[in-house]
């Protein structure tokens, strides 16, 4: 293992962990509202997969996406300001925790509809293929999504059209309170993708090196025209589903057993025993992440609410006619927005 790269991956996971812990704290302090889903325990998945991408690739995620956004390059400040509901947020405060978007890093969201991102990813990959670009679209979703029709329709389309998309199923064994075995007749998720003729395999999602290795192999194959690939990343969420979940459906023992395989501890121990991480380096790494998150909180705290007069902006594109000028009053708008077909900025 390359020492510097190992420490880099460790730092990525620690950044996500600290951001999420701060989110929980800020939620308890009522700075953040709405639904909040944290990624604590699952950091190796985003860290490993996103390490395998280039800047032109596209990422689609779920409502549990703070970590994906951060590691894709969205600043922690813009993420937190979004959750504060401020105009400095990555979506001007209109999206919130579940709807983080960022065009600059080709981060196509947060999506609060389970399986809602899969068809989008298929379309992004279709566009790349039609335009002859060698980009890869990576789509994250939970194992709960595989029960939705949209999952199966997306698998089939991607395989049928041999699209450059990597599906990353974050199998944390629960969809809210519903355990995988209580919701799927076939619990081997990679098999489902294989049923659509998609190359698919399972990876230990607590081992960031294994995740990165699997993702690199899959991304390389997709990029070189090998068609869609599918990774089932076996992981676990250490915290409740959201801030409203009393966790009646699983035992504390089960959670404790999984926490013994904390992805951060696993990599840290491996680095230490290989002599790649000194106590001072570990301290420094944590301090760096802490400083970043502290600065982000400061940035968010200094944020400003968008003027209410702007409420009805962005319902239609602003560069065309029919941009809903008379919609603010609720009066019927005439005509179709002309700017609509121009595509994303």
């Amino acid at each position: 293992m390359d020492a510097a790269h190992g420490r880099h991956l460790l730092l990525q996971m620690v950044r996500v962990r600290q951001l999420e812990e701060k989110c929980v704290e800020l939620y308890s302090a009522a700075k953040i509202r709405g639904f909040l889903h944290v990624y604590i325990g699952e950091e190796a998945v985003a860290a490993g997969v996103l390490a395998s991408l280039g800047p032109e690739d596209a990422v689609v995620a779920t409502y549990r996406e703070h970590g994906h956004a951060l590691l894709r390059g969205v600043s922690a400040g813009a993420i937190l300001a979004e959750m504060y509901g401020y105009v400095e947020g990555c979506c001007r405060g209109r999206g919130g925790s579940m709807h983080l978007f960022d065009a600059a890093t080709r981060f196509f969201g947060g999506n609060a509809i389970v399986a809602g991102g899969l068809p989008l990813a298929v379309g992004l990959a279709l566009a790349d293929k039609m335009a002859g670009r060698s980009n890869v679209t990576v789509c994250f979703f939970g194992e709960g999504a595989v029960a939705e029709g949209a999952f199966h329709e997306s698998m089939n389309l991607a395989a049928l059209w041999q699209l450059p998309v990597l599906f990353c199923c974050e199998n944390n064994l629960y969809a809210m309170g519903t355990a995988l075995a209580r919701s799927e007749s076939q619990t081997d998720i990679a098999l489902k993708a294989a049923g659509y003729e998609i190359a698919a395999w399972a990876v230990d999602g607590m081992d960031v090196l294994a995740v990165e290795e699997g993702a690199r192999r899959a991304v390389d194959a997709v990029r070189s025209g090998g068609g869609p690939h599918f990774l089932e990343l076996r992981t676990y969420r250490f915290r409740a589903h959201s801030m409203f979940d009393p966790e009646r459906y699983r035992t504390k023992d089960e959670v404790a057993r999984w926490m013994e395989r904390d992805p951060i501890t696993l990599l840290r121990t491996a680095l230490e025993s290989a002599g790649h991480l000194s106590p001072a380096e570990w301290e420094q790494l944590q301090a760096d992440a802490q400083a970043e998150i502290a600065a982000a909180v400061e940035f968010a705290e200094a944020g400003t609410p968008e003027p209410v007069e702007e409420l009805t902006r962005f319902v239609y594109s602003e560069r065309g006619a029919g941009d809903g000028a008379d919609e603010a009053t609720g009066a019927d708008a005439a005509g179709q927005p002309a700017g609509k077909a121009a595509g994303a900025p």
Partner: peptide, 20 residues
């Protein structure tokens, strides 16, 4: 007369949501 929600997807930020 009618009082309805503003013609906008309901935003997250509290002040915008209330205004809608």
């Amino acid at each position: 007369g009618r009082v309805c929600s503003a013609e906008v997807p309901i935003p997250y930020a509290k002040h915008l949501e209330l205004a809608a």
